[in-house]
Each structure stands twice: as structure tokens, then as C-alpha cells.
Nucleic acid binder design. Structure first.
Lengths: 190, 190
DNA sequence: CAAATAACTTAAGGTACCTTAAGAGGGTGT
DNA sequence: ACACCCTCTTAAGGTACCTTAAGTTATTTG
């Protein structure tokens, strides 16, 4: 059951048998039905999540009530409201399951304990954060330089599996356009 | 001369005397005149930079020749084309000095060596990457939910010093709007 | 210090994308 | 099996922001 999360970690660091036991003792597995809110804005963001199976979405609701999708996480992705998890601030975003999902969660105290007792994880999370950072930076670049249509095609090319698992409305809110406009963009093709 | 970069590091990790010596032996100080291109697209991105004084700007030029500012870095910031530095890919972005600047550069081999010989730096760069990631994520959120005018005010509020050091045109290209439109936004006030 | 160059502004006309509305199709729950 | 709700689509009218152009003020350069 922990195979997938352990091989995710093994992509970047090698754990001894004892270190593996420490790690697995600090994470908790959970299965959550579809459309469950795992985190709500203004709540304390207590966990970092690894998606074993299923799909999650984090989104922001602005002062006008408009929803913007921050990120999707399908199998083998990590997700949470990172700023609030790391800085002990109330969450700014919502996190919900798109479909029934099995996740592993690490609480903040356990996250700190993990980094203390197995410092190798500093390296693991450095690489995770590095990748997340460069991915977000690329997204900013695309938002600044591409049209809505180009961003849609880039999204589908980059994340074909996610494009299949989520609704058009959710993709539109990730791209920063209305579902109506996405619909007109998609019409010409096929 | 290395005081500022060392106290930047001391914000997150404590170095012994020997570790400090290792670190300073791996970085090189440079003073660069204004408007110097430190990195160009398609070049190999060989260095990570810390800004001791002055100001740098990284930008992207898209297929239509339009320039988008990725980030500014003033005193005490780290900057490079992170994706290309870490993944040994040709640079996607340009990096230039806005004014005469003193920087410290770390080459890729020295960066790897630093992480190997002083593993504490894994923690330092984890925190650096974490902060960069959450900052970019907030920028994506603002790009998706705020109007151009709101983004401009948010930028000035968040980075008052940068707003003073760079041109309006550069701010416009960071916000994803034209200088002409920024000008009309600024007119009503004062 | 002049001359060139770049930054900033103003304004008119244009376009990418939004808002509102309404209808068709597909799940979901009772 | 019906009603309900949500997604997706289409279309008409609206707006935020762009393009082009031209003038003014800084800043750089010879």
C-alpha cells in the first residue's frame, strides 16, 4: 500500500530500512469520497498530502466569489496550501477531492520531526519545492505570453491525464478564462 | 564584503567556521555595470546569483518578440534561470543588470559540491525554494483574480523598493500589461 | 552641451475575452 | 421514473485591455 509513495521518494533519495519505518510511522493513509472538502479557507492547514489514487483540486475564491483553480493533483502528486502549511497561517485556499481518492497525510509536527530525524528529507523536499517553483514560474510565463487558446493547448499537452479527469469548467478556472469562452475555443477543432 | 550573503544564510541555518570557509571558497564576487546581459536565452545557465547590491531583472522574449519580466532581484535576493540551472537545459530567459550591481555567483559544480560537503545547505535551499514557490503561486492567484489596476497596487505595496528602482515599462511587463495601459491606470491617482 | 535615445503620457480605434441568457445533454438522488 | 442539478454549448452585447501613433519629458551618449 505504501509502495507508490515510497517509490516517489526513491526518485530522489535512498532510505535505509529504519528510515523507511520512521517515514511510514509518520504518515496516515485515508480514503475520501468524491467532492469532499479536505481543507477550507480560514481553517488551519494542518497537513501535507500525497495522492495515492484519485484526483484533488485546490482553488481560491476571491472577493467577488470567483473561483480560480490553483492546481490539480492526481496520482503521485503532492498537494496542500503550501504557504499556510509552512508558515502556520490560516488557509487561503480550498482543497477538495474531484473523485474518490486515497491519500497519505503528514501533519505539521510529523513533517518537522521527519526533517529532524531523517535530514535526507531536506533534500527530498528541496527537490520537490524546486520542481514546484519552476513549474509555477513557467505557468506565470505562459499566462503573460500566450493567448487563452494557446494556454489551453499547452495544458492539454502537458497534463493529458489531468485533462481527462477534470471538467472543462475546472480547466477554464485553471487557465483564467470563463467556461463559455473555453467552449468557443474548443469548437473549431475535431 | 561577504557579511550580507552570510547573514542571508544565517536566517535559516547556522554555519560553523569551517563551513563558512567552504562556502566562501565556492562563491565568486563580481561587480557588473548597468544594462549588462549576464545570461541570454539558449546559453548554458552556469550560475546561481546572489545580489549584494544593485538590481537585476530576468525576462522572457516570446515568439512575437514580446518581453515579459519574470522577476526582479534587488539587494539580498537570489536569482537565476532556475529551471535551466538545475536541469542543465539551455536558458529560456535573459538576465540583466538594471543598475551597477555587485553579485556573488556559484557555479553548478560548486553548487553540487556545496550540497555534498555541507548538507545543511539542502535545508537552506529547501527554504529558499519553498519561499520562491509560494511567492510564484500567490502571483498566479493574483493574475487569475485581480484586475490590472489591483495587481499594480499589490505590486507597489509588496515591493515598494523595487517599484522605486525599476522603470514603469518594466513593471508593466511584470504585470502582463502594456506601458500605455499602466499609464492610464496611474493617471487618476495623485 | 548638444543630439540621440528611451521613458512616459494621451488619445482614438480595435480585439480578446466577459456577462448574461437560454437550451440540450448527462448524472444523481428520492 | 421523475425532478433536479450541473456541465457544456451557442450567441448577443459589453468591457478591459491592446495597437498604433504622436507628443513630451528624462536619460544616456558622443
Amino acid at each position: 500500500m505504501t509502495d507508490r509513495i515510497l517509490s516517489n521518494i526513491a526518485k530522489h533519495i535512498q532510505l535505509s530500512e529504519e528510515e523507511t519505518i520512521v517515514f511510514t510511522s509518520l504518515v496516515v493513509r485515508k480514503t475520501v469520497t468524491k467532492k469532499t472538502l479536505i481543507l477550507q479557507a480560514d481553517e488551519d492547514c494542518r497537513y501535507l498530502y500525497y495522492v495515492h489514487s484519485g484526483a484533488l483540486r485546490s482553488y481560491y475564491i476571491d472577493k467577488d466569489g470567483k473561483e480560480s483553480t490553483i492546481m490539480f493533483a492526481i496520482a503521485d502528486w503532492w498537494i496542500t496550501d503550501m504557504y499556510c502549511f509552512l508558515n502556520r497561517k490560516p488557509a487561503m485556499t480550498y482543497l477538495e477531492t474531484i473523485e474518490e481518492s486515497t491519500i497519505f497525510q503528514i501533519s505539521r509536527p510529523n513533517f518537522d520531526l521527519l526533517l529532524e530525524t531523517v535530514p535526507k528529507f531536506e533534500r527530498f523536499f528541496r527537490i520537490l519545492m524546486q520542481n514546484a517553483y519552476t513549474r509555477e514560474q513557467l505557468r506565470v510565463m505562459e499566462n503573460l505570453s500566450l493567448t487563452a487558446e494557446e494556454r489551453y493547448h499547452s495544458f492539454v499537452r502537458k497534463y493529458p491525464q489531468i485533462a481527462r479527469q477534470v471538467t472543462k469548467k475546472q480547466i477554464a478556472s485553471y487557465l483564467g478564462i470563463t467556461p463559455e469562452f473555453l467552449s468557443t475555443l474548443r469548437k473549431p477543432e475535431i
